[in-house]
Design a protein around this nucleic acid. Sequence first.
DNA 1: CGTACTTTTGAATCGCATCAAATCTGGTGG
DNA 2: CCACCAGATTTGATGCGATTCAAAAGTACG
Lengths: 220, 220
Amino acid sequence: MLIESQPFLAHIPPGLREVAKCRNMEAGETLFRIGAPVRNLFCVVSGEVQLLRHDPRGTRIILQRSRGGFFAEASAGSKAYHCDAIVNEASLLLCFPLEAFRVALEKDAPFRSVWMELLAKEVRKLRAQCERLSLHGAADRVIHYIESEGTGGAITLSQSRKSWASELGLSHEALYRTLKQLGAQGVLHLDGHRIFLAGKKRESSNVCFTPASCRSNSDV
Amino acid sequence: MLIESQPFLAHIPPGLREVAKCRNMEAGETLFRIGAPVRNLFCVVSGEVQLLRHDPRGTRIILQRSRGGFFAEASAGSKAYHCDAIVNEASLLLCFPLEAFRVALEKDAPFRSVWMELLAKEVRKLRAQCERLSLHGAADRVIHYIESEGTGGAITLSQSRKSWASELGLSHEALYRTLKQLGAQGVLHLDGHRIFLAGKKRESSNVCFTPASCRSNSDV
DNA sequence: CGTACTTTTGAATCGCATCAAATCTGGTGG
DNA sequence: CCACCAGATTTGATGCGATTCAAAAGTACG
């Protein structure tokens, strides 16, 4: 069950799995605080954890909201945490002792390569999300999302539209209106949780359309 | 000179360094196209490279703008590229043969650990940037930036304000006005490229202020 | 000295957030 | 099975804030 939600967990070697702990936490609980020594790597199985700091006026500066997957991976290299971790809603967490995790990465080459792959994928995904959030139009963000997260111009949403809106950095009202409008314009077709970009059949269809500057550089 | 711009490069083992190639490319040139086999890992030393796809109407979907550092790391795991790479302004690139890079990661433990650290740091940074871009107010983004990228509520900008604005997902006019306003309100102090958040002296000053729920969970 | 770029300020416009409220949905318990 | 509730979905009206267009002043560099 855990493994379904996080395919990566299937690759965790037995030695590490044995020392991993499961923790149920309630909303509002603190996982760690700034300055605390780093002794574990955490993975959110369900629920939400927030990494945050506080600005001078007490406002929360959210560094990361994690709803599934590892968080604060970068802390693995530091002695102490540079932010607080607060459980935002009742959550199930996996805790891996840092040293055991390090050893597993060191000794177990396949595990290591899966981990590096995971990090690299995460980087790719986050970069695309940053570019998307830099777009000012709601429609632009929706189309960007389908193009970058979907396949061949289509996507199946695995979440409610409301939380999709939040991921897009939009109010849910704005998203509903934008989808309706794009549907009416024929730019995209809505079919429940499945969304198609109109006029897009195959991923590679317009590779050849691209402008000039297509010298013999395509492969280096 | 290269190493100054990318401290990571200092850790590249000799064997890999020898097979790395340097490439100067002009604006508009194509580095690779969708579907091309992945044979190199690239690092931008100067200039800008964009990873992009095209939506049905020919609009560019920018997946990543890279101005320094590695890009398309995630492609290292795939056979073929899933996007185009276009040089957006005259750039200097480093090209590492993929196989040699893999071997270096496999054989050279210190190099490997530096590389994983680099990926993890990148993830942290990108997650913070996503949270920042999700904020709707210009002032919120500025403060978030100083809190997350700076140290103890202060930061020294290493770029023009105009490009900072772009990183914040704002028009430069909006940034100028916001800075002026925050300065007038006394929220922050401007001193050339150095910016201070008012009333913030030490990083850890308000760790103890935080609410309840601070049970003995701080360390797990 | 001139050119290119950044910085700065102004004015007008537009899109999205926000507030409000109605409908629809799935799930719970009587 | 139905009443009921929490949450998601949908539509409307309003206001604010950021974008945009425009233009001037400052700055770095050859």
